[in-house]
Amino acid sequence: MTTTTELTQNASNADKERPFFSVTDLHAYYGESYIVQGISLELPKGEILALLGRNGAGKTSALRTFARTEDPQLKQGEIWLDGQPLHKMRSHEAAMAGLQLVPEDRRIIQGLTVEENLTLAQVAPGHGWAIEQVYERFPRLAERRNQEGVTLSGGEQQMLAIGRALVRDVKLLLLDEPYEGLAPVIVQEIEKILKEIKLLGITTIIVEQNAVAALRLADKAVIMDTGEIAFTGSAQEVLDNEELRHEYLAI
């Protein structure tokens, strides 16, 4: 007969063997629309994954499912982060467990200054960076700390959205189209910041239409096609495979 102690030890061993972040046989729906169709992936701690695909491939839906938002609805599968079962959590619980989503629309809170947006993000338990640390890495935000967040430029709003995630206790950072609508010079500035985040050991998943920019930054790549995974491998493999890029990314 298996004892309680043995069950606890077995569970502990399973957690040790499980990757830092993993998704297994994930199925999710928007109403009746079957949008995430049985995807599985894993990511070691401190690495960056580029989640790529054409428009409508299911990339953003996958990110939102990882983050446990209400839509899409998870119907089947498991999501684990650092031994914690995100698939059993709601979005606020997943955030407290260390998953931070920076959505494409950035969701800067109207009526609050830059500093107030950052301060509000620190209300929940589990603080990450101090606000002054954010200002050190985002000098533009320091210069505009008393400016209303929604009046910032697009690039500055993206910096604020990333900074807001970093003041939480972030273990996994999800970035949805971080370069969308930004001038090339601002994209380079955001890339520099993301490289620094990587050096700090923060695990990151990037969904980005600018696939080459995302691949230059990433360790691994996953390409989605109509809700399923069409390719999993290194970022360099995708950069080196013109046929693969043309078929699934149109580049």
Rank of each mutant, 00 (worst) to 15 (best):
N55D: 10
D71G: 05
E70R: 14
H92M: 13
E116T: 00
H27G: 02
E78G: 11
M96C: 08
G53K: 10
D25W: 02
T69S: 14
R54L: 06
S91A: 15
I35M: 03
L81C: 00
T65Q: 04
L112P: 00
K75Y: 10
Y30V: 06
I108H: 00
T65P: 06
K75V: 10
Q100M: 09
Y29E: 03
L49I: 07
L26W: 01
N55T: 13
L81Q: 05
L99D: 05
N117Y: 00
Q84M: 13
L101P: 03
K45I: 08
E70Y: 11
A62Y: 03
I35V: 15
R68M: 06
H92K: 10
D25T: 03
I48F: 11
M96H: 11
P44V: 07
R68H: 01
L112H: 00
G38I: 10
E116P: 00
T60A: 07
L43M: 03
G111N: 01
L63R: 01
S40W: 02
K88A: 15
W80M: 15
E104T: 11
G53Y: 05
K88R: 14
A62T: 15
K75A: 14
R106A: 08
Q84R: 15
N117A: 01
I109V: 14
R90I: 08
Q76D: 14
S40F: 04
L118C: 04
M89C: 13
E116F: 00
I48Q: 03
W80Q: 13
I35Y: 02
L63M: 15
K88M: 13
Y34Q: 07
T60M: 01
T24F: 01
E32M: 05
M96S: 13
M89Y: 05
H27F: 08
S33N: 10
N117F: 00
W80I: 15
A50N: 09
S91F: 06
K88F: 12
L99H: 05
I79D: 10
S33I: 11
H87Q: 14
P72H: 14
H87W: 09
S40M: 06
Y34G: 04
T60V: 06
K75M: 11
F66H: 05
E32F: 03
E104I: 07
L81D: 02
V36T: 09
Q73E: 15
A62L: 12
H87S: 15
R54M: 11
N55A: 10
T60I: 11
S61Y: 07
E70A: 14
F66R: 01
T60E: 06
L52A: 11
S33M: 05
G77W: 04
